[in-house]
Design a protein around this nucleic acid. Structure first.
Lengths: 213, 213
DNA sequence: CGCAAGATTGAGGTCGTTCAAATAAAGTGG
DNA sequence: CCACTTTATTTGAACGACCTCAATCTTGCG
């Protein structure tokens, strides 16, 4: 629609240093759309996202999909403490994770107060983010959902100006509980209103002066 | 619509013994619709629900309300670890809670492995329940939402046959992301189909042979 | 350059909401 | 305990938002 101000390093490669617990943990590289684990798998390890992005989703028997969360570099995945995975995790793009066994997790929680605090705060942040999404999905219009999502992403991606969304429209739609067509329409409507600017590639988005939600 | 098989003790009083951490904690009695705390309040203690029921909700500036969770006897509230409350907690009916300070919580987490496990598992259960609701709110029909909710409640209230829901329709609607009229219609439709039976009082509900969702 | 996958746009239908009214239930005060 | 008030629930009708289906356009990749 409009052009976005180009910057010298438009796409921050987004690779993040590991916390000590994962310093020597083995890495795993995932191709685009590769599955890290699936709903129902035995949960025997947890992960730290080094680079790339993951989506965690559930699918109903008739194919409706809901994406719980997107995981970005620096996030921890797999703390839920269940025997079996409750959702599927897939790479949105090429992604690198560090893996650690659950025994490690239990040991660290019991012996390392700093790590325990990290885990607790990660869980609480997770819970709070999820709760915010409950309000979003239960009571908000597509427009509000999208603005809220973009604001969150802007914050998490660390750029308040513009940022590169590594996510296809379908994923965003399944995250926000919308049809992809509705998402697309809402997106262009926001662009026409001047609330956002969409790059020529479609993936780069700039939030213009976004008032709270 | 139809009559529900009467039982000698139709309404289980639902009062639950305290875990040790709350054994000598002060009690607080809440009248119907009384507020335990409000969004934005300073969070200085956490609670154990002894009897009654609570609803945790958020409200948008224009009055749309979303109920995150209902708390029933035996549930713990206030583990989120935030400085300020992120939601409002009110009594659905006359309710008794036990209160403990957050200092107690921190101390117990650091010193008592059993309590730590309790807290962690409570948080995980909470997170999982919330995640299930994300799918529900994002991708399910009113009918599916209601059946899922009734099934959950039947399990939590401990009766797989019929049970007394202490909740008004409006609360259920705001929990499931529906208009109260839609909820009511869906309810009577399910009753006509024979999937549920609604008592003359409207609050007692029997789930008939509910296949999974 | 051509194909495949993703995104946008359009048209039409459906389901859930909104507004409004009627009915039922629960409190209240005599 | 009853009549009355108030609140909650059910029901109806009509509108509108979002979804579905389908076609077009764009982007990415071989």
């Amino acid at each position: 629609m409009d052009s976005i101000p180009e910057v010298t390093a438009p796409t921050t490669p987004r690779c993040v240093p590991c916390p000590p617990a994962f310093a020597s943990a083995p890495r795993r590289m995932l191709a685009k759309n590769a599955e890290l684990f699936a709903e129902g798998d035995v949960a025997d390890c947890f992960f730290f996202v080094v680079s790339g992005a993951l989506r965690c989703s559930k699918v109903t028997s008739d194919g409706r999909r809901q994406i719980d969360t997107f995981l970005l570099p620096g996030d921890i995945l797999g703390l839920d403490g269940y025997e079996l995975r409750r959702f599927t995790a897939e790479a949105v793009e090429e992604t690198v994770v560090a893996c650690a066994g659950l025994a490690t997790l239990d040991r660290l929680i019991d012996t390392d107060p700093a790590f325990r605090a990290l885990v607790l705060s990660a869980m609480m942040a997770n819970l709070e983010r999820t709760r915010a999404r409950i309000l979003l999905l239960g009571r908000m219009t597509p427009r509000e959902r999208l603005l809220s999502f973009l604001k969150e992403m802007a914050g998490r991606l660390g750029h308040l100006g513009h940022f590169e969304l590594p996510l296809p429209r379908t994923d965003i739609a399944d995250h926000l509980g919308l049809a992809k067509e509705t998402l697309s329409r809402t997106l262009t409507k926001l662009a026409r209103e001047g609330r956002i600017v969409i790059g020529t590639t479609g993936r780069r988005i700039a939030l213009i002066n976004a008032p709270t939600v």
